[in-house]
Simulated scan of single mutants.
Amino acid sequence: MPTLEDIRTAARELEGRIHRTPMLTSSALNERFGADLVLKAELFQKTGSFKVRGLLTKLLRLTAAERARGVVTVSAGNAAGALAWAARDAGVPATVVMAHTAVPAKIDAARGYGATVELVDGDLIAAYERIRDDRGLTGVHPFDDEDVITGHGSLGLELLEDRPDLAAVLVPVGGGGLISGVARAVRLLNPRIKVIGIEPAAADVVSRSLEAGSPQRLPGARSVADGLAAPVCGTHNFPLIQQHVDTIVRVSEESLVEATRWVMSRTKLALEPAAAAPFAALLEGLTVEGPTAAVVSGGNLDVSRLML
């Protein structure tokens, strides 16, 4: 598990390379939910999501030989763009494995950053491993990796540097990379802060894993929040979630769509459905007390996905 000094070291490595995203407030959201919310606006991050924190951290820590082979990841879209951007900046060839049904804008973004995009059917993880091994590429897992988790911890540091009075943090959950890093950092700094994860009921691999007591697979997961439809719970992420996350809340597809539309209309933030997960939970009745940070994880929105 990363130490607080590990996370601070990663934050120093990222400084000047990525954005320090703002903490925003909205009286309309606070009135609607009866809460004291502050929004960590990661949709303004490089490539439009939090993913660059962990993937750039990983890339910076690869050996020269690992970089020379080229890197490959698997992604619904945001990790693909993040790795492609980071690899281009470092002069490293990048390949990303994506589902043929991935959001077209996310496919275009990865190609625009210079990555080779492999669109596949079926088991994405299996395709990723096959391409990695057949081509001798250096694998970079989008969430199940210690360096990636440590990089995401930098977001947790920023939360408490900007708002040391936080009582709770709401974090979207896919495979567990973001919440494990944020929860580790937050709890090391202040163990009294409540950490709540939110995932789609249609793609609830982390909830299922916690119920089973071990990481599970859900290869057929699909959700309007495509960034949260991870087929597995990460083995590195799982113990951190067990130790540091108070609860995981499942939300419906309808609530994700409603929350996306409502937050966009009131705040003018073009968040993607994955980033609306905290607000979907609040719409469904989640209550929080005291200053609460909602991580707005990304803004790579495909408007057509808002139609059920």
Rank of each mutant, 00 (worst) to 15 (best):
Y128W: 15
V182T: 12
D133A: 15
H19S: 12
I7Y: 05
S255W: 00
A109Y: 01
A270Y: 13
R130P: 00
C233N: 14
S209T: 12
V74D: 00
L137H: 01
L124H: 06
R61P: 12
R111F: 01
G156V: 03
G136Y: 02
N78H: 11
A221P: 07
L159P: 04
L24K: 10
A90P: 02
E199A: 09
S26M: 07
R20A: 14
L56K: 13
R69T: 04
A35E: 05
T57R: 15
G77F: 01
R32D: 05
L283V: 02
G91T: 01
A10Y: 12
A225V: 02
R208V: 13
P22K: 12
I107R: 04
P231Y: 04
F238V: 10
G234C: 05
A76T: 15
G175F: 13
L210Y: 08
L157H: 12
V71G: 06
R192H: 14
P142I: 14
V120W: 00
S223N: 11
A230Q: 04
L188S: 11
I107P: 00
H152V: 10
A82C: 11
P104E: 03
A276I: 03
H100F: 00
G112S: 11
E15P: 00
V117M: 01
R61Y: 10
L271S: 13
A202I: 00
R266I: 04
A99W: 01
P172N: 09
T73I: 07
L228K: 01
L14G: 13
S180L: 06
A84E: 08
A126F: 05
V288E: 08
G181D: 06
N30V: 11
R266M: 08
S223Q: 09
V249G: 09
L137V: 06
E161R: 15
G77V: 01
N30Y: 13
M98L: 06
G122Y: 10
S297P: 06
I125H: 08
E253Q: 04
S252K: 03
G175S: 14
R8N: 02
F44V: 09
V251T: 01
D165T: 07
G177T: 05
A115F: 00
E284W: 00
A293L: 06
V205Q: 06
T63I: 13
G227F: 08
R61T: 12
R111H: 07
I241W: 11
D134Y: 02
L83Q: 14
N190G: 09
G34E: 05
K106A: 08
R135E: 06
H141P: 09
M264D: 01
L157F: 14
W85H: 15
V303Y: 11
R192E: 15
A294D: 03
E161L: 06
N300M: 08
L37V: 07
A102R: 10
G213H: 02
A276V: 00
A76C: 10
R187A: 14
L157A: 12
D204F: 00
Q243M: 14
A99I: 00
V92W: 05
L228M: 06
A212D: 04
E118D: 02
P273W: 14
L178I: 10
V148M: 05
M1N: 10
A185G: 11
L218Y: 07
D134V: 13
A201E: 13
I193H: 05
V71F: 08
Y128M: 04
P142E: 08
A110F: 03
Q243N: 15
P93S: 02
A281F: 04
R135T: 03
K268C: 07
F44G: 05
